[in-house]
Design a protein around this nucleic acid. Structure first.
Lengths: 206, 206
DNA sequence: TTGGAAAATTGAACGCCGTTCAGTAATTTT
DNA sequence: AAAATTACTGAACGGCGTTCAATTTTCCAA
């Protein structure tokens, strides 16, 4: 059995080597510019070998996305446990989402923005999986803030989706339009959060 | 002189043929999948000919973007003249923006989302030009609503950028995540507009 | 009308790409 | 030691954006 185990360990380690090389190239040169040949050269194997570990280039991408987004999900899950005030927790969740995107711009864009075939709905669905998982965290945070009377109880799903859209917009603009003369980033994010939480807040108590 | 004019007209018409064929392919198959060879075949010329009218593939794209976005700019410019209530005008402008994006998804994504080289800042700047032009319309609408006392007078630029980000987010999510179980589109857009305009509104009068 | 210059167009060629697969090398089993 | 299984190679395929020498077409002066 030790032999089987070693073989398996070797396969695993090569698989990880491929992933590491791929991440480096995807992040630094973008998905399109990172060629299978370059990845193969980096790990000193032939291009063909990669295809016995991953069925195609986009499966490499999927594996990396899963790794990265699992991290965000963990971060988001921790917030409601650490923060008793549900409105503060919601705000922190929204900020965390944006900051994750800004720290992992390539990964973020690849999950939330279609740029390739347009069709291929099978894979598109899969790509989105991680996004939908993270969205659940947002929905729970909104639900809690509504239950606590902080937010007006307009349809939970609609409100959550509207907030997500706004977050996504801020994140993707900051990433993909670096040439635009944005005001100071922190102030801009705070202003959007102010507007959103104010606009969704239950009136009458203040 | 009539000869020169005819030659020029012919060059113009071939240029337009190329653009028409390119638009068709860019929109229907996406920028990446639309190859110069396919465009050439469509107009029954050789691939090389296209390069005596456009310096490269992305210049084709730029020309198409300019055509399309000039249309949006015109639409947006017309709103403040037609709508006396500045708050209603602002809302209509925001809606127009989203609807334009939804009607021209490929063009929208190509202007507002980077997906290619990541670097190449020269062209990135140029691509954004149209977006920035449209942003001016939003800023003017916000300024007017502030001047009329409808919105709280927090920094104009910051508020405008925050609203733009939210719009962009809704637009690009609806375009690029067709697999997500969104609630009814109209209701979702309205809810976001409600939240935003409520969150930015001057308090105390209601 | 015609000859030659100027302009327009061609299409083969270059160096990339993702992907496949017959063949070879390495390893394990018998 | 031979056979069988596994891992890996790298040439090859068809496609891409782009270039450019060669060719065709168009124009005007002689």
């Amino acid at each position: 059995m030790g032999i089987e185990a070693r073989k398996l360990r070797h396969k695993e380690s090569l698989r990880q080597m491929i992933l590491d090389a791929a991440r480096d190239l995807f992040v630094n040169e973008g998905y399109k510019n990172a060629s299978i040949r370059k990845i193969a050269e980096k790990i000193e194997y032939s291009p063909g070998t990669i295809y016995s570990y991953f069925s195609d280039k986009s499966e490499l991408l999927d594996a990396l996305l899963e790794e990265t987004f699992t991290g965000l999900d963990t971060e988001l899950r921790a917030i409601p446990e650490a923060e008793p005030d549900s409105l503060v927790a919601l705000r922190r969740g929204l900020r965390t989402y944006i900051e994750f995107g800004l720290s992992n711009p390539n990964h973020y864009l690849l999950v939330f923005v279609l740029d390739e075939n347009s069709f291929d709905s099978e894979r598109q669905q899969f790509k989105g999986k991680y996004g939908f998982q993270c969205f659940d965290n947002l929905r729970r945070a909104v639900a809690r803030a509504m239950a606590d009377g902080h937010l007006v109880e307009v349809d939970l799903e609609t409100t959550s989706q509207a907030l997500w859209a706004a977050m996504h917009g801020m994140t993707s603009l900051l990433i993909s339009q670096p040439g635009f003369p944005f005001v100071q980033q922190e102030a801009l994010i705070d202003r959007l959060l102010d507007i959103l939480l104010d606009g969704a807040r239950r009136r009458g108590s203040s």
